[in-house]
Simulated assay, not measured.
Amino acid sequence: MKKILVTGALGQIGSELVLRLREIYGANNVVATDIRKVDCAVVQSGPFELLDVTEASTFTTIARKYNVDTIMHLASLLSANAENNPLLAWNINMGGLVNALETSRELNAQIFTPSSIGAFGPTTPKDITPQDTLQRPTTMYGVNKVSGELLCDYYYHKFGIDTRGVRFPGLISYVAPPGGGTTDYAVEIYYEAIKNQSYTSYIEKGTFMDMMYMPDAIDAIIQLMEADASNLIHRNAFNITAMSAEPEDFAKEIRKHIPSFKLNYDIDPGRQAIAESWPNAIDASAAKKEWGFKAKYDLSTMTEDMLKKLEKKLVQHAG
């Protein structure tokens, strides 16, 4: 990777990935793009371009302008938002991906695009979900992700494009606010623990989902993109995870730092239905074997770091 273009650069993943990439590869070698522009570190620290990923010609024009050899395509509508507006989700998630792949084909650029545990469905084995298994999702987001996995495989086999990707679990970050995902409760719970010592979860007690702390997710992207292509059997949509947890697990860890913390429930039927269609815990052995994936954070170490960083952030904002 020498010249990298990142779409959705102001989103949950992009806002941290861009800064990390600029540290490694140099600020001028990482072009951040998004449909909006705000005054923030991503915009200030290197090249930034406005880009609606559904506009094919603009996508390719920007990539050519900077002579990019790598595209990290993160722009998408997340699970809960996608279910509320399925046609918009299809247009952004699939239309944007096609444009990213076509741009990669024209420039012969390597491309990363994330899939998700949302690509699985209620008929997928829920425990130790295999790398290769039945995928019949019942959400528009899930349909987009399965379609995207297949499309990336197609561009690799048909055109020889170096496509790579992972199936992200729920991602937890103190940097960007929640962005309309089903697993966002696992971010919100930390904010509310610090602000109010209580949280009302929209996900039911006992609902397990895979999760990962954002530093591990960022490392996984970079590690996969730098991996020797000859070692990659699956290429796209590697299962990765750091922990499988339910709301009470988060509460238990938070109480080690905030003993008065209380967890309540007010279930959102829509997001609960999505959560129940996803696995309880996935098998990440293919990623470990093919490119050495290993998460550094578990629930305990993540909680400690998350509370410390978030408290500092909230104090700064209050000041």
Rank of each mutant, 00 (worst) to 15 (best):
T207G: 03
P177Q: 09
F168N: 03
A176T: 03
T7Q: 01
P269S: 09
L21Y: 10
E290T: 09
A251C: 12
G160E: 13
S15M: 02
G270D: 08
G121T: 07
A176V: 04
V143R: 03
H234F: 09
I13C: 11
F48K: 00
Y174R: 04
S260K: 14
T123F: 11
G142S: 06
S116R: 08
G319N: 13
S198P: 13
A237T: 07
L50G: 01
P47C: 01
P269T: 11
A286Y: 11
D266L: 13
L87M: 10
W291N: 08
G95N: 13
T70E: 03
A89V: 02
K312V: 05
Y191C: 07
T7K: 01
A82K: 15
L171D: 02
A220S: 11
G270S: 09
N29E: 02
Y199H: 15
G292A: 08
S116E: 06
K294P: 10
E83N: 11
Y156E: 04
R235W: 14
F293P: 03
K2I: 01
Y191H: 15
Y185M: 10
I194K: 01
D52N: 10
M306V: 01
T103C: 14
G319C: 12
V31Q: 02
G142C: 09
S198E: 15
L263Q: 06
N85Y: 01
T182E: 10
I282W: 01
T123Q: 15
N236E: 15
F120D: 05
I221A: 09
M243F: 07
P169G: 12
D52Y: 07
D184T: 12
G95Y: 13
I71D: 08
I282C: 07
P122Y: 10
P130R: 05
Q131E: 15
A100Y: 15
M306H: 03
K296M: 00
S285H: 12
N91Q: 02
K3Y: 01
V146G: 12
M302P: 14
T33D: 00
N280I: 03
K158E: 15
L307M: 12
I161T: 07
D228S: 05
S147R: 12
Q223H: 07
A82T: 14
L151E: 12
K313E: 10
D216T: 00
N29P: 06
V43Q: 02
E290D: 08
T61M: 04
R167L: 08
I233G: 01
A63H: 06
A63L: 10
G46M: 03
M212Y: 02
I128W: 01
A318H: 02
D210Y: 04
D162P: 14
A251W: 10
N85R: 09
I24D: 02
D249F: 06
A217M: 05
R271K: 10
A217S: 15
I24R: 11
K2D: 07
L150N: 14
I13N: 04
P177V: 04
M214F: 05
F48Q: 07
D39I: 01
M214W: 04
H257F: 13
V38S: 01
A286T: 11
F250A: 15
G148D: 00
G142P: 00
N280F: 06
A100V: 09
M209F: 13
G121K: 11
